[in-house]
Each structure stands twice: as C-alpha cells, then as structure tokens.
Design a protein around this nucleic acid. Structure first.
Length: 483
RNA sequence: CGGGGCGUAGCGCAGUUGGUAGCGCACGUGGUUUGGGACCACGGGGUCGCUGGUUCGAGUCCAGUCGCCCCGACCA
C-alpha cells in the first residue's frame, strides 16, 4: 500500500492546477521572484509546440531572427502609449562592468522598439518590403502577481514583427496570423478558441487594433491564448521608418506584431487535464505510448523484456511518427508505473505480461478515458493500426469534449442582474450587448470582475440594448472573468 | 500594494506549560516481491529562514528582518 499518493486534488481549481504542474514535473518554482523552471517534460511540450508553430510561420513566409535582450531605456520612451503601458512592469539594468550605466537598459518586455530601430536602417524602398520576421525569445515582465505558466516574471514566447508598404497588407497580415493561432489552438492543442477584436481598454500599448484568441478553462474562466496586433504607423512614426513607393513618394511603414507564449502550456493543462494528472493531445504529447512490461521471476523478466523490445521495434517501424517509450525500470511495480504515466500525461499505455505474450495480445489503455475498465485487449498483429487510430480518436475526442464544455458554458444574457448572478454561479462566456463605451466596460469590471474578452469576428449583427446602460448596441460581445 | 498563510532532513509535516529534534515519503544496503501506487531489516542525512533580546537553558517567548505561497487590483 502506498502511503502518499501523487494525485492532484479536485476541491480547489487553483490548487489542482498547481498540483498537476508540480506533480507531473512539467515545471518547478525557481528561487527567483515569480519565475519558474521549465523541467524536461514541460520543455519537450514547448518544443513540440514550437515545431508546429514554426512550420506554420514558415508556410506563411516568415523567417526567424534574433534581437537583443537589453533595450536602451530611451527606445521604450519613443512611443507614448507603449512606454505608458510597459514602464511599470519593466526590469531595468543599471550597472555593468562595475559602474553605473549612463543609460539604463531595460530587459525586453517585448521587442517592438529594438526591432523598429533596426528596421529603420533596413528599409529604404518599397522593394525592401514586406519584412516578415519572427523571433523565439524570453521576455521579462515584472507583474505583481505571478502564476505558473500563465504569468511568470520571465517567460518564453514567439514574437512576430512585420513591416508593410500599405495598410491593407498590414491588416491582412494581422488577420492571417490570428488565423494561424486559431488553427494551432484548435487543431494541435485541441483547445477551442474564439477569435475576436479587443476593446480600446484591452488593446496592446501602441497598437491601432489588437485581436486575440480567447479560450475557456475548465473552471469557466477565460484565457487570452494569443494576440495579433495591427500597429498601424505608430512605431514607424516613433522610430522614423519611411520608404519610397514606386512613384517616389515617401511614407511611413505599416506594422504588425503577434505572439504566443508558454502560457499556452497553462491553457493546455487547464483545458484537458483531470484529477489523475496531465492529459496532452497526441499531436503535442512528448510520449504517445508507454509500454509497461510485467514479470514475476527473473526468467519471465528476460522473456518479457525481449518480447517488449521486439514488439516496440515493430510498432516504431509501422508508426514512425509515434513517440514510444519502454518503462523497463526494475524498482517499480506495474501499478506504480500506470499511475506515474497518467500523472505525466502519456497518451496511451500498453501492458505486456507473460499471459499477453502467450495469447499474442497486449492491453491498451487510453489516458483520456476515466473508466478504469477501459482496457482494450488487442491482438499484437492489430496493435500498430489500433494505436494510430486511438491517438487520432483521442485528439478528436479531446477537442470535442472541450468544445462541448465551452458551448455548455456560453450563455446569452440581456439582463445585468441575471448576468451578475450567472457569472458567479455558472461562470464561462457571456454573450452580451454593450454600448461600446470604455466607461461602461470599466464599470462592469469594477462591479463584477468580468471583462470584455473580445468582440467576436464574424458575429451576426444584432440590434440590441446595452445590458448596463440600455444604449444602442450593434451586436454581442464576450464577457467573462479572465486569468 | 492590500488580505490570509507558511518558513524545522531532498519533499510533506509534527514538536505539549521553554530542558538540547522527531514522523511519513524519498534516499543507501541486503532480502522477499512485481497484472492498479509492495514489504521487512538495518542505515545515512538538521547551523530549526536570518538578526538581536529575555533566560541557567529558546525550534518553542519577545522585537525586528528576509523569503515564499494563496486570494484581490495589473497583464501574454
């Protein structure tokens, strides 16, 4: 009998989330304020995300580059809204080489400013445009409150920064990348999202317009999972980046920026995982199938391990994209291994013991099926195809389940009092009429703690009255409590 | 920055009215085990967050200080 189980608790969602992260060994608290250590399992997940996103960026014509970590403080001050938005959360380097610096260096909270300082030197003519660059980097934001993956002082992300000759081109790019994020979230992470435009209050500091994809976690709170900004000519003007068009006329360059971060890992956990630990969609899972061999005697051990290796070699040959692992550790019993791999989010488990070898079969178990009786006795000859099929099904099922939860917790509401009640009792997304006034939005936030997550793209126009002020509204927006 | 909580072995914790530190897990060795979190025996491991004070004596009492976690206001 085990005395202490490594199982997340279910009573409190925040505590459950922390337990899943720590116990699955995705990450750990670091001895640095608000920072975390991403452990190998967490990083493997991030690498899989990176790989998928990076190939999507390449397909849309982007290239990777790298810009410096430290930015002269004066750069940030060049764009008024930008400095106002980011100044409070900047970490600043004041000394170097044992001396006080003439000008402090800011640890980048985002890279628009250094990048646009460089773009000024790179852009002369319309022939230099567009510039489509992405960088994988770490950034630092000194937030008051931190939370593993969702908001750490330092985090990893990807930031795209593009320069265009015309406004429509920049707008098109903004929407294209938002769609890339939507595709990635839904098809890879199996996390349903709602793409939409941010309100003036919520938009990026220095942007003309901000778009985001909004996801819903299992506790009914919203998570901003990715953003794409139409920066207009704000940064070009601040950094004096102009080009000559084909008629010889000079104009400021149009810009976009877009990014997703390791926050996605937090979103992934809060979307799919359960009280037994991590659940990861197969397209991103570091381990697809772990084989747990079972033996009693030393004689059985050698027979079973020999068979396990042979069978896995066969499976690898027939499922070359599948990530297999053989857990042949001697010091743990099978039951312990089952639990451990469930906590760590391996998509499937194959049990192989003497009886199975005798019967030329294996026992397959899918991580996302909670029923303990969900054991599949599969003939070895059929196993490779079955594994592939189950992984495909799991990817599909996870999305369907998350989608169902999201729809079940999306409520159309017209009355403010009803909204307040349901917000507390049910949570989730609320489709509400809003008069478009920032003051009304602030009032709602103060009174209910909910914010307008986005104005959904392609919403059906619907005349209505603002839930709070009763003024005219052209359509519904999404309101929710957010992380 | 407000509210709450916690700092004692790698981790999780106990430690009574002050008397010189303990439990579980983990770890090491040996053995028995292995189809849902094994068991037995022996063993290693601590400047009790830090500083000062009270006292014959402080993990325990007092003052200060540092750090961390959770909940809010800000944010990817």
């Amino acid at each position: 009998m085990a005395k202490e189980k490594i199982t997340p608790r279910s009573d409190d969602f925040s505590q459950w989330y922390i337990d899943v992260v720590l116990q699955s060994q995705l990450a750990d608290y670091a001895p640095v304020r608000g920072c975390m250590v991403i452990r190998p399992l967490g990083y493997a997940l991030w690498e899989n995300m990176q790989r998928a996103l990076d190939s999507m960026f390449k397909e849309t014509g982007h290239q990777n580059a790298y810009f410096p970590l430290m930015i002269p403080e004066s750069f940030l001050k060049k764009e008024a809204e930008h400095v106002e938005g980011f100044a409070p959360e900047c970490a600043v380097v004041t000394h170097g080489g044992g001396k006080e610096l003439d000008e402090p260096l800011v640890l980048r909270p985002t890279s628009e400013t250094v990048i646009w300082d460089m773009y000024r030197r790179w852009i002369e003519s319309h022939r230099d445009l567009p510039i489509l660059i992405n960088q994988w980097a770490n950034v630092v934001r000194w937030e008051m409150r931190t939370r593993l993956f969702l908001r750490t002082t330092e985090f990893l992300w990807q930031e795209g920064h593009t320069a265009h000759a015309t406004e429509p081109e920049a707008r098109e790019e903004t929407m294209r990348m938002l769609e890339v994020y939507r595709t990635f979230a839904e098809e890879w992470m199996a996390m349903p999202v709602t793409p939409g435009r941010k309100t003036e209050n919520e938009k990026f500091a220095g942007a003309l317009e901000t778009y985001s994809i909004e996801a819903m976690m299992q506790d009914g709170r919203a998570l901003q999972a990715g953003t794409s900004h139409h920066l207009g000519q704000n940064f070009a003007k601040a950094f004096d980046v102009t080009f000559q068009d084909d008629s010889g006329k000079r104009d400021y360059v149009w810009a976009t920026s877009w990014g997703v971060s390791t926050r996605l890992i937090g979103g992934l956990i809060m979307t799919h995982s359960d009280d037994d630990g991590l659940i990861v969609p197969p397209k991103l899972a570091p381990t697809h199938l772990v084989m747990v061999p079972i033996w009693r005697s030393d004689e059985q051990k050698s027979t079973v391990l020999e068979a396990a290796n042979r069978i896995l070699d066969d499976w690898k040959l027939k499922n070359p994209t599948c990530r297999f692992h053989l857990d042949d550790r001697d010091q743990f019993k099978p039951g312990f291994k089952y639990n451990e791999w469930e906590v760590k989010g391996a998509c499937m488990r194959a049990e192989l013991g003497p009886k199975d070898i005798e019967n030329q079969q294996t026992v397959l178990v899918r991580r996302d099926k909670r029923e303990k009786s969900d054991k599949m006795f599969v003939p070895l000859s059929e196993a490779p195809t079955r594994i592939g099929a189950e992984l495909d099904a799991m990817q599909h099922d996870l999305f369907a389940a998350a989608k169902a939860r999201q729809e079940e917790r999306t409520t159309v509401v017209d009355d403010y009092e009803e909204f307040k009640t349901l917000l507390e009792e049910k949570g989730g997304f609320f489709m509400v009429h809003w008069d478009g006034d920032g003051e009304t939005e602030k009032r709602m936030q103060e009174e209910t703690k909910a914010t307008i997550r986005c104005i959904p793209l392609g919403r059906t126009p619907e005349k209505g009255k603002c839930m709070i002020t009763g003024k005219e509204s052209k359509g519904r927006v999404i309101a929710a409590k957010a992380y």
